[in-house]
C-alpha cells in the first residue's frame, strides 16, 4: 500500500480501519490491567503473558479442530482459550500475589515481573522458540472506497474482531453495573474491609477479577492469532506494554478508560505507521506513555484519588 496524492481519503480510511481493529485488541487486554489495578492497586505485569498463552491455545486449538466447520471451530477455540487462560489467571493470583497481599507495595509488582519471565520461558520450553504459523481462517472482505487505484478495504476478520470486542465490552459493562457480582467487585475496589463486613468474600472477588481479565486477554490472543497468522512466546511483552499504556492513557482503574485508551493507542499506532514509519510505530505508543505519566498521570477518565466527606 503506498500513499498517493489522489487517494488521500481512501488511504486515511484504511488507516482508520486498521487502527480500530488494533485498538479493539489493545482495549481487551487493557481491561485486564485496569480491573486488577482497580481492585488490588497493583500492575499485573504478567498479564501480557496471559494473552500470549491465549494465542498459543488458539494455535493448538485450530490445529486440533482442523476438520470442524469454521464457526464451530472458532467457538470451540474461544471456549478452550478462555478456560485455559482463566485457569492461568486464577493460579497466578493464588500462588504469586495472594501470599504477598498486605506486604510492601513493591513485592507483588516484583512477583508479577517474575511470573512474566517464568511464563515466557515456560511456553518457550513447552512449545519451542520457533514462530508458529496459523493458516488464514476468515478470508475476504468488503471494499469501502476506491480512489486512484487505492482500495480501502475492511476484511471480514476485522469486522469479526470489532463486533466480538463490542459484544464483550457490552457484556463486561453489564456485569460490572448490572449484576450483584459487579456490585461486590466495585465495593471491594472502594473499601475491602467494609465489603467483608457486609459478607463479601473478598478473596474470591479478587480471584474472579483476575479470571475475568484473563478471559478478555484470551479472546484478544485468539483474535490476534487469526489477524497476524503468527504467534511466538514473546508477543505478550509488546502487546502487554502497549495495552498497559492504553490503560494508563484512559486512566488506570477506569473501565471505559481502558476501552477508549485501547482504541486511541491502536489508532495512533496505525496512523503513525501509515503516515510516518512502520519501524518507529512502537516508539509512538511509548512516547504516549511517557507524556501521559508526566502531564496527566490520572489519564483521560481518571478520577481524583479521594472524595470521601
Amino acid at each position: 500500500m503506498s500513499y498517493r496524492e489522489g487517494s488521500v481519503v481512501a488511504y486515511f480510511l484504511q488507516q482508520l480501519v486498521n487502527g480500530v481493529t488494533l485498538g479493539s485488541v489493545y482495549g481487551l487486554i487493557a481491561l485486564g490491567y485496569t480491573m486488577v489495578y482497580g481492585i488490588i492497586g497493583m500492575i499485573n505485569f504478567a498479564h501480557g503473558e496471559i494473552y500470549m498463552i491465549g494465542a498459543f491455545v488458539a494455535v493448538i486449538g485450530f490445529t486440533l479442530f482442523a476438520g470442524v466447520p469454521l464457526v464451530l471451530a472458532l467457538l470451540l477455540v474461544l471456549i478452550l482459550a478462555t478456560l485455559v487462560t482463566g485457569f492461568y489467571g486464577w493460579t497466578l493470583e493464588r500462588v504469586a500475589y495472594r501470599p504477598l497481599r498486605g506486604s510492601f507495595r513493591l513485592a507483588p509488582l516484583i512477583a508479577a515481573i517474575g511470573m512474566s519471565i517464568f511464563l515466557q520461558n515456560y511456553v518457550q520450553l513447552a512449545q519451542g522458540a520457533r514462530i508458529k504459523p496459523v493458516p488464514p481462517k476468515i478470508e475476504g472482505g468488503l471494499t469501502l472506497l476506491v480512489q486512484e487505484g487505492f482500495a480501502a478495504r475492511v476484511s471480514y476478520l476485522q469486522i469479526c474482531i470489532l463486533l466480538l470486542t463490542l459484544l464483550l465490552m457490552a457484556a463486561l459493562t453489564w456485569m460490572i453495573h448490572g449484576t450483584s457480582f459487579g456490585r461486590q467487585q466495585r465495593a471491594c475496589e472502594q473499601d475491602k474491609v467494609m465489603a467483608a463486613l457486609l459478607g463479601v468474600n473478598v478473596d474470591r472477588t479478587i480471584s474472579m477479577t483476575f479470571v475475568t481479565g484473563a478471559i478478555l486477554a484470551a479472546v484478544a490472543g485468539v483474535l490476534v492469532t487469526l489477524y497476524y497468522g503468527v504467534v511466538d512466546f514473546f508477543i505478550g511483552f509488546l502487546a502487554g506494554v502497549k495495552a498497559f499504556t492504553a490503560a494508563v492513557l484512559g486512566g488506570i482503574g477506569s473501565i471505559p478508560g481502558a476501552m477508549v485508551g485501547g482504541l486511541l493507542i491502536g489508532l495512533i499506532e496505525a496512523f503513525w505507521a501509515g503516515y510516518f514509519s512502520t519501524e518507529w510505530k512502537d516508539v509512538a505508543a511509548f512516547s504516549i506513555l511517557v507524556i501521559v505519566l508526566i502531564f496527566r498521570p490520572s489519564g483521560i477518565f481518571g478520577r481524583p484519588e479521594v472524595e470521601k466527606v
Binding site: S180, R183, Q190, D191, A195, L198, V200, V309
Partner: peptide, 17 residues
C-alpha cells in the same frame, strides 16, 4: 464507611448480601 462511588441504592443492595 459508605461506598462513595456506589449509589445509595447500590449501597443498600450490598447490605442485603
Amino acid at each position: 464507611r459508605i461506598f462513595p462511588h456506589l449509589t445509595v441504592r447500590e449501597n443498600l443492595q450490598m447490605g442485603g448480601l
